[in-house]
Write a protein that binds this DNA or RNA. Structure first.
Lengths: 220, 220, 220, 220
DNA sequence: AATGAATGAGACTTCATTCAT
DNA sequence: AATGAATGAAGTCTCATTCAT
């Protein structure tokens, strides 16, 4: 803001189109909201503070957001996919390292957003709840289909229910965040990946998969 | 007030009711609080309503509870162990049916309490959070020890990290509630139990365990 | 309850029973509201001020009144009959002095209430508007009936429409307030009464009425 | 702003628009304001809406009007004479039909403006109040003078106070609007005119006046 | 001149908690 | 102990008006 104003006085306006500047204020509010929600908690943060922290007037807050909740909604809108366990895709890869990497990415995103503390609050919102549920269902379906395919190809366990296995995989994926809180360790990703793989592949199959993928990578 | 508090431990009730009627009022308030919190949500319920619903005066509320939060704390105090994933003990049992039954019990308790809706609120409370964390850690330790023992006895997988496996088991146990919400089914308990067992025992071990236990049960 | 409480403590409290005290607060708020509305105007007065002026907390205001408007409603509720033109009854009286006296009473009430300034505001309220309209219609009906009777008895003009005359009488009655503002004078009441009488009685009839009433009063 | 105001008379427009387009905007705002005030009420209408309805920006509103109130003032400025009871002039006419026609004209104007709903608001404005009062006084004076003249010529009642009669006539004239609301009827104008005439002329005088005027009209 | 985003004072209201009875 | 009226801080949100472009 300081920079901008320097240019204004001199007369060479950066001349950001109105919409863009407005967009910036909106973003400032979003960021300010996210920061404060994480820092002080949802209930402990009020619209006035969010506005002040974003260096705008209270009224401006209400130009862009109906209320505090809508701000929260907007904050997570773009990140819905990141607060949802990753869609694990193990085909054509070394499953363990692939999954481990996915877990790490998911965990990083989540941590970066600092949304852990907001998560409970999010769940209260029916709309958000629905979005999350839909995504969960969608992902569950994809994972299940892959499990079925794998089963048909004789790659996976035959005695486990695909649907429950899919939910389990999702649950385990999500748990990486909690595990890292209790017991932070770089190897958690790999270890959890191994566990997830155990739910999918019998050990001998997994070995072959790793082998073949590492070979193909070698050749390629 | 200062005086009174000197005589009290923090978190204790403003006055320990010794008479029956008083105890009844306290219980009425607890029940009233639980009902309303579940029905309308924590924030949407106020002290006046809780008191009214319990057929006492607003002021009486504060004779039994320091504030609204303490009421919530008291509500869950007795149930902390029930909102925590069960401590799975598979020794000397058919692991699958034993775990399945544990899952069912846990799920039932949880559902009955209707605490799902309060859970997010609970997590905000540092004190409760700590209690939960402690319990989690304690349970994790126990499970891990059993896993280690099992490993030593050659009963369990040797390539999985015991600690992460223990967390995974806990995570899966807790996920039964969510799974039942997405896909209600009586067999979920058994299917999830199978999955948990897969993380512990190689299939051939599990078979033997089941066999021996059913035999031992026959003989006994 | 009031009695009981007097005996509880030494008994020398002003010890107004709860209800009574509450009622007093309510009255204080009503009076405070009336005063401030008249003094500063409706829009310029807010709930906080009304409460402060009545020496109660803001919240107390909202225990007794839903909002500012409801306070206003309550203020005038009891006075609705006083802000409505008087119901003129001239039978068996010296019409002029009777009407003059009625006008004076009405004017005094109105002035005392200081409601002139609030009147415009009152009219905005639909509910109040309806009450006023109903009363107006009721009074109009009564006056008209009397006019009809008088006409039948040959006491009143025969060429004037009773309904319009009734409205005119009401309008003139109400106008005393305005007239007194423009041109304050003790004789206004009598002069306006004369004018109203002119709309009802031909001069010769009026004379006889006055005469006979004054005679009957002498004899009685 | 300070500078600008120095060059302006209080109550004058921030800038006197000299160009056609500007004038049009001003008119659009006036019309927009009038419409919305009537439709939604004074308090319920805000500057933003008025501007939007006139297809100009919010800021433009304040180029033409100091504030919302000034807009209202400007709206009625041209119509002040129309919200004031008509100046009844009965000389050289059939008084009844003349007055009836005046009443109708007044009523029509008033209705057309839709100012009934704004009236209460107008009265709050001191400036407007004064204008109205001045006009009322002026009209009252004129009517009274005519009454005095009539009295001298032996045309009117001798026992009625001219001043009060004048106020009464004004009050009755104004009441046509209310009467029409309660009891809409085309003949109201004539009937009320008759009543007003009764306050001025004794029946026999009125008859003669009507006769002579109709004759004179015939001859002319 | 015109624009419309920005401002911020302040209105209204709720409710956890206290206190007089 | 019990009562419920009273408190008043704190929150949400509006809108007349200003201001940068």
């Amino acid at each position: 803001m300081a920079k901008e104003q320097e240019h204004q006085l001199i007369g060479e306006y950066p001349s950001l189109p109105k919409q863009k500047r407005a967009l910036q204020k909106r973003l400032a509010l979003l960021e300010s909201g996210r920061t404060l929600f994480i820092e002080k908690g949802w209930e402990q943060t009020n619209a006035k503070e969010i506005a002040a922290h974003a260096h705008v007037a209270t009224g401006t807050f209400y130009r862009y957001f109906k209320d505090k909740r809508q701000l929260l909604m907007s904050i997570i809108e773009d990140y819905v996919d990141k607060i949802i366990p990753p869609e694990l895709n193990w085909t054509n890869n070394d499953p363990i390292s692939y999954i481990a990497q996915q877990l790490e990415t998911h965990d990083c995103h989540f941590q970066q957003l600092g949304l852990q503390k907001l998560f409970p609050e999010l769940l209260k919102d029916q709309q958000i709840n629905e979005i999350i549920k839909e995504n969960q269902t969608r992902i569950h379906k994809k994972i299940m289909q892959k499990l079925e395919t794998a089963k048909e190809q004789g790659l996976s366990w035959t005695d486990l229910d695909s649907s429950i296995t899919a939910w389990s995989i999702m649950s385990l994926s999500a748990s990486i965040i909690e595990i890292n809180q209790y017991q932070p360790n770089k190897t958690n990703y790999v270890e959890l990946a191994k566990i997830i793989c155990r739910l999918i592949f019998p050990p001998e199959v997994l070995e072959k998969l790793i082998e073949s993928n590492s070979t193909s990578q070698h050749t390629s």
